[in-house]
Every structure is written in C-alpha cells, then in structure tokens.
Write a protein that binds this DNA or RNA. Structure first.
Length: 656
RNA sequence: GCGGGUGUAGCUCAGUGGUAGAGCACUUCCUUGCCAAGGAAGAUGUCGCGCGUUCGAAUCGCGUCACCCGCUCCA
C-alpha cells in the first residue's frame, strides 16, 4: 500500500475515532456487536445533521418562491417501485459471470457446448524476472514454471516446506543443475514474497468446441491482468472438460456463472400483520418517487405554475452489498432531493419563440422564461455549488459530467458534484436532467393523468400557423431518429404528443438535484478536521485537533466560560450570558479545568466562538468594561471585547 | 460474495497459558487572573460473542458478528 493510502486510512481512522469520542457518530447497536452498514448520530452529530438539513431546506424551499416542501411516507404502494423500474431490474434471480461480473437472468441462459478449463490462479512473470537473483543468469521460459508442479503446489498447499521444495525443484529443472548453498539461501529468502505474489483464484472458462486451450488461457490471462497481476502465468490443466448443453457459463464471455442470487437492493418488508407475499412492500430506496407520485396533489393544492419544484428530505434504504467508508455508503441514509418541474423545450419555444442556448459564461443568476432544460440544469448546478460554498465546502468540490455512455437511457444530462474525502474523491450530489421519464412512467402505470394545463402555452400555440406546427413536429421527429439510446418514439406518438401540447397540456420535464445528507455531514467533518503538533514549555509534544467547521453548521455555536469557577461573581455572570444566548443558538457552558483546556475542548468539536467572563466583566478595571466579555474566534484565537448586550446582534448573523 | 487484517477501559494501545495494565479522557476536592497548568482521591473491562482444548484461556483451536483494506457492487 502506498504511503498516501496509508495516510488517508490513518486520517479516516482519526476522524472516526473523534466522531465516537466526542459524540458525533456511533456504530449502531454497538453493545450487541453492531449492525452492518448503519450508524447512529450522537448529540453533536444530531446537531450537525440538523444544521445541514435546515440549511438545505431553507435554501431550497423557504427562501424560494418556486419550490414547495413534501414529507412523504417511507412505505408506499409497491406499484410505485414497479413503475419506477426499481423492482423489474432486480427482482429476478440473477447469475453473475465470474470473469466480468456481468449479470444474466438465471432463467435466460442459453445452453452451450464446449470445453471448460479451470485455472487455479496466477503468478506474475514480471515478478519472476525481478527475482533474477534466485535464478542466476539463466533465462527460465514461462512455461517451465507455469507447467510444473510448482505452480500447482503454490495453490494447493499452505505448507511452506512443500512449497519450498517445489520451488527448488522447479528452478533445478529450469536451469538443468543442482543449486548451490548460496542459491538455496536466496530461494529461502524470497519465499515469503513469492507466496504473496501468487494470486489464488479459481476461474473456469468455456471455449466453443474445437477452439484450442490457448484461447481459454488468453482469457484467463486477461482476467488476472485486470486483477493486477502483471504478465500473469496461469496455473491450469492441459486438457479441458467437455461440456454439453450447459447453462453454467455466460453466453458472451464464457465465464462460469455464480449461484443464482436475488440482486434486489431494496429492503423488503410486509405491510400488514399476515406477512404473505401479497403484503410485500419495500422501504423506499430513494425519496424521489414519492414526489412524482404526489406531483398532481401538490400541483392541484398549491396554486403553482410550471416551472416549480418539490423538495423533500427523508430516509431511504438500500441493501448495499458492501457498506463502506464509515457513513459514506450505508444501508439507511437520508436524502435531500428536489424535483424541479419545467416545461418541455417545445413549449418554451412556442411561448417565447426560442429556447435560450447555453454557452460558457451564460447568466445563471435569475431564471428566464425562455430557459429550456439545458439552462435550468446549469442553473441548478450553479445554485447547488453556491450552497456548498455556504457551508464551507467550496474549495473541495469537483464536477463530473457524465458522458453519453454513463447516462441512463432516459437521462439527458447528469453532473455529479464530487468532494474530496480521505478515501478518495466521491459523489456528494447528482444533478440530473431526466426529461419526463418519471412522471410519464407513473402516468402510464397508474393510468392517472399527470399532465398539467398551461394557459399561456395554449394561447401561444393558437397563434401558430399549421406550417409552424409541422416544422416543430418535423424537428422532433428528426431528433427521435437521431437517438443513440432507447427506442425512438413512433411518429404517431410524437404527433399525438404535439396535439396535446398545442392544446396547452403536457407532462412536465424534471431537473433533479439529489444530495445525501450523511455524505454531506461526513464531507463537512472531513474537510474541517485538522491536526497540528504543538510542543509545550517542557518539550512535550501534543497533537492539537481542531474542527474548522463553518459557523452555520457547527453543532455548538458558542462556548460560555467563567474565567475561574471558584469566584461566584464570575460564575453568576457567565450563567447570565449563557441563559441569554441559549434561547437563540446551541451553546455550551463549561466551568471545569483551565480556560485553555476549555477552549481546546470546544476547538475539537468545531465550536466557532468562545465567550469568557473575566474580572473586567465585573467592572474591576473600571465601569467602561462592566458587562463586557471577551469573544474568541476558534480559527485565529483572536479575542475582542464585546458588550453583553451586543452579543446576540453580532453572533446571530454569523451562525445562521 | 471472495481474499487479507483488526477486535483488551470513553479514546489510543501494551499484554504469547497462571492475580487484567499504561497514557490520555472522565468524576470529586484543592489550587489556578486567558489558550490542552499542578496536586490529591475516585470510578471505569464477562479482554467482540459462542463453543471447544486445558487444572487454568485475553493468550491455543473452531465458529460467529462487527469494523478496516483490496477486489466486486453502488440501478
């Protein structure tokens, strides 16, 4: 492992440790040995999450005129997951190709004939060349190693003596003489590294009848190369096994298929007490579908017009194969999703006479009536970027624009907002332009209309000539024909769609910024974490840990400290200040230990401000300092004197 | 799912078959006039869990759970 990788693991471990020690994040059910892939937020973590949640909710809904909130249930009619495609894609038993991990439906494998070769593992030929010291100057042909017992011995035994003897014999045969003492020593010396260089993994490959062993070996070599074995020598039999009408191999790759397994990542449960198949439903794997399912209700009950959005924050559940990287990929997590509904570009064109083209540097500050999906998509990327800047993540963001290969067939564009974590640069949020895929899918499945009626569109369309209308239709038909993914819409359907459009009715299109709250919390913690080494007067080294959290997200906003706790006047005044502030923000009162230690404790959990009540606050140095306190900044350590009566006015704008 | 590693006090870890430890943290008291100060006392563990071997297990074996790393997965 590289030094960088080790450092980042160490960094992550420090963050995990701090999170537990100071009450940000605990392992779920820890006293019972834990529970895989789920985490609990402690007192400070709960505050942190709450602050992030509020920041999102305020920015995305309350501070906007065009976005409404929703709080849907986690359990829903399972038909929703059928319509969204979540059930269909994964409900069947799937078998996975052991070579490529491509999946096929277990009941859809074509029977095949051929010859199957099983390879037991591989060792790097480059490794052997690098170990020339063992072999002296003699060139050993790859086959001299691969086709000897030695290769198989490596795989079949753990016994070091046996492996050692096999190795010596192989080299002896390869160079055609006995080894001298010095050479034998060298072999023994290299044995541990040799054992590590062997990759033991059994794979079976089917080649069509008549094809030579070499074609199977070639596939095996490619496989081991992908796994990181440089110039692999594969261990395998000279003669394969004849196979007839077998359904155990992937039709395209020839790789052996694993056991049939259900690949549904949705958590299944039973709604109702009888627990029969008829009662099966799922814990939602994403919050978005509820927004689509309730789209019409929100639209009808809120006097809104397209474009408008529906935002939601809530728990979602996925049965991840491998939960990983602390809270980054967990089985229960919280999403913050906006579905922003817009007019189809054709409607924009009819109303505004054009669709604003996007170009680098376009003005995204205020939405315009002539924006099509592209401008709206860029707009939301811009809005979300500003949001992340507002919580202190501005300088660690990266963007990945999905290529047409990455995109799902219904998506027009998707950008991932990524963030640097100690374990790598990973996705925080995805912003997708999904067309009308979701609403249309639910409209079809539910047979309830999810169209909106647009008076403005109807009026504008009425003014179009037949030629203008036909030109719009032809333009769309050309676009459908040029599609590289998914089937083009048939002409009759296109014409029917335009007929509805010209009457003012359409299914809105959607831009979907979808963020993970837990990931955001982890990103904020990882970004804020810092350690510096300090040497005190006695030469003792100390590690000083500080969380440089943005004041908006910090779980505790202010620490309130009497300089000394054995002076009742200081304590009384400090309690007064604490009582004043805590009604408006999360504060922490601390009178134990030295003042420096109390500062340090708060630095470690990211409290941005510290207030100390000293003797000046009591007016000892003169009446002008009476009822003033020192306000300390976490990041600079600087202090200023502030009147108690000015504290709220000064702090509130900084922390909210 | 496969392979490797780890699991002992709140945290970091030492402890290779014979009375469970250290540093830091924590609680109380004393002391302390601004950046992890000092002193005194105290509390804290079924050594992840289960089964086995043994006169005796944190230590050895088997199983299991969780976490970490590498593959894989991430619609």
């Amino acid at each position: 492992m590289s030094t960088d990788a080790k450092n980042s693991i160490a960094q992550m471990e420090k963050i995990v440790s701090l999170c537990k020690r100071r009450g940000f994040i605990y392992q779920s059910s820890e006293i019972y040995g834990g529970c895989g892939g789920v985490w609990d937020y402690g007192p400070l973590g709960a505050e942190l999450k709450r602050n992030l949640r509020s920041a999102w909710w305020n920015t995305m809904t309350r501070e906007r005129e065009d976005v409404l909130g929703l709080d849907a249930s986690i359990l829903m009619n399972p038909a929703i997951w059928k319509a969204s495609g979540h059930v269909d894609t994964f409900a069947d038993l799937m078998r996975e190709c052991s070579l490529t991990n491509k999946r096929v439906r277990a009941d859809h494998v074509e029977p095949q004939d051929g010859v199957a070769y099983t390879f037991e593992g591989a060792i790097s030929w480059t490794f052997f060349l690098n170990q020339r010291g063992i072999l002296g100057d003699t060139e050993l042909a790859p086959d001299a190693i691969a086709n000897t017992n030695f290769a198989m011995i490596f795989h079949h035994t753990q016994d070091e003596d046996e492996i050692y003897n096999g190795l010596v014999n192989t080299i002896k045969n390869g160079i055609g003489r006995d080894l001298d003492d010095e050479e034998i020593k060298t072999v023994a010396h290299h044995l541990p590294a040799m054992l590590k260089a062997v990759m033991k993994r059994s794979i079976t490959i089917l080649v069509p009848p008549g094809k030579p062993r070499e074609s199977a070996e070639k596939i095996a070599k490619e496989y081991f190369e992908r796994l990181g074995v440089d110039k692999p020598l594969v261990f395998g039999p000279k003669v394969g096994v004849k196979v007839e009408r077998s359904v155990d191999f992937h039709p395209e790759t020839g790789g052996a298929l694993g056991d049939a397994r259900p690949f549904n990542l949705m958590l299944k449960t039973y709604l109702g007490p009888t627990a029969t198949e008829a009662d099966v439903t799922y814990l939602r794997p994403e919050t978005a579908q509820a927004i689509f399912a309730q789209f019409k209700n929100v639209f009808d009950s809120s006097r809104v017009k397209v474009p408008f959005g529906i935002g939601q924050i809530g728990k979602a559940f996925r049965n991840e194969v491998t939960p990983k990287n602390f809270t980054f990929r967990s089985r229960e997590f919280e999403q913050m999703e906006l579905e922003f509904f817009i007019k189809p570009d054709e409607a924009v064109e009819i109303i505004s006479g054009e669709v604003a083209p996007w170009s680098e540097g376009a003005d995204l500050s205020e939405p315009k009536p002539n924006w099509g999906w592209q401008m709206w998509h860029r707009y939301w990327v811009d809005q979300r970027t500003k949001f992340y800047q507002g919580i202190g993540l501005g300088d660690v963001l990266q963007y990945y624009w999905q290529t047409s290969d990455d995109l799902a067939h219904y998506a027009r564009a998707c950008v991932d907002i990524l963030c640097e974590f100690p374990f790598g640069t990973e996705e925080l949020e995805g912003i997708a332009a999904r067309g009308d895929f979701d609403l249309s899918a639910h409209q079809n499945a539910s047979t309830k209309s999810l169209e909106v009626f647009d008076e403005e569109l109807k009026t504008a369309a009425a003014k179009l000539t037949d030629e203008q209308k036909e030109a719009l239709i032809q333009k769309r038909l050309a676009a459908e024909a040029a599609k590289t993914k998914g089937a083009p819409m048939p002409e009759s359907a296109v014409r029917a769609w335009f007929e509805r459009l010209f009457k003012g009715s359409y299914v809105p299109h959607v831009i979907e910024p979808s963020a993970g709250l837990d990931r955001m919390a982890l990103a904020v913690l990882a970004k804020a974490f810092s350690e510096t080494e300090k040497v005190d007067e006695k030469g003792k080294k100390e590690i000083i840990t500080v969380l440089h959290l943005h004041p908006r997200v910090a779980p505790i906003k202010v620490g309130v400290f009497p300089l000394l706790k054995n002076k009742p006047e200081l304590v009384a005044k400090a309690r007064e200040v604490y009582a004043l502030l805590k009604k408006h923000m999360n504060c922490f009162y601390d009178e134990t230990a030295s003042i420096g230690r109390r500062y340090a404790r708060q630095d470690e959990v990211g409290t941005p401000f510290g207030i100390t009540i000293d003797f000046d606050s009591l007016g000892e140095k003169g009446p002008e300092l009476l009822d003033t306190v020192t306000l300390r900044q976490r990041d600079s350590g600087e202090q200023e004197r502030v009147k108690i009566s000015d504290l709220l006015g000064k702090l509130l704008p900084l922390v909210s």
